[in-house]
Amino acid sequence: MPHDHHDHDHDHDDFHHHGMSPSGHPYRADNDEPLSYWQVMEIAVRELLIEKGHVTPAEIAAQIEAMDARSPANGAAVVARAWTDPAFKQRLLADASAASAEMGFDIGGLRLIAVENTGDVHNVIVCTLCSCYPRNLLGLPPDWYKTRAYRSRTVREPRKVLAEFGLDLPDTTQVRVHDSTADMRYIVLPARPAGTEGMSEEDLAALVTRDSMIGTGLPKTP
């Protein structure tokens, strides 16, 4: 366990001597460094928009809250619906933007494509040029999704990358990598796990992991 440091002396007076928090980790430094160029630009534009009456601070705070509230639970709800409702699944595969908007998860000006995993095909999503990600359904991307290693290796050696995520695919499965290079965003529709017959949509959604919708994992089994 990362918080067990039995070799450390957790005597109360020692915390301050060693600059450690009671959990045994260093305190985070105060952000006293000067603002970057872009931080200054953001503050200037925001203050001007407020000063000129285009937006209010409350509207900005509400928008940040709405953006932070998006999570993989949205995508999991869409996947569970597709598993239980064949007509919805058809609509999702035909036009994923419209189908997810139906459930209240609007993607705005972008377009969403759902790609389906089957017995023979496994899909995985990457953005080699930057970090395009279906934020309306999955929230903010994980840090590894934005790394040069994931972005460059997933198009070159996807099977090795997937194996590092714990996903070993047989040679008989075709891997389809989707590079989000332009205006589309992608979500993987994972295959419904065996042994889930008769489960409710809500219980099924709990099996759908974020990584299973990026393609770097599979749904949990009950």
Binding site: V155, E157, V177, D179
Partner: peptide, 19 residues
């Protein structure tokens, strides 16, 4: 097609959006 003999698995595919 992309990686030639260095391909990890020749029949796997990459889809990308191109103008």
């Amino acid at each position: 097609e992309i990686w030639g003999d260095a391909a990890e698995h020749p029949d796997d595919t990459i889809d990308a959006e191109i103008y």
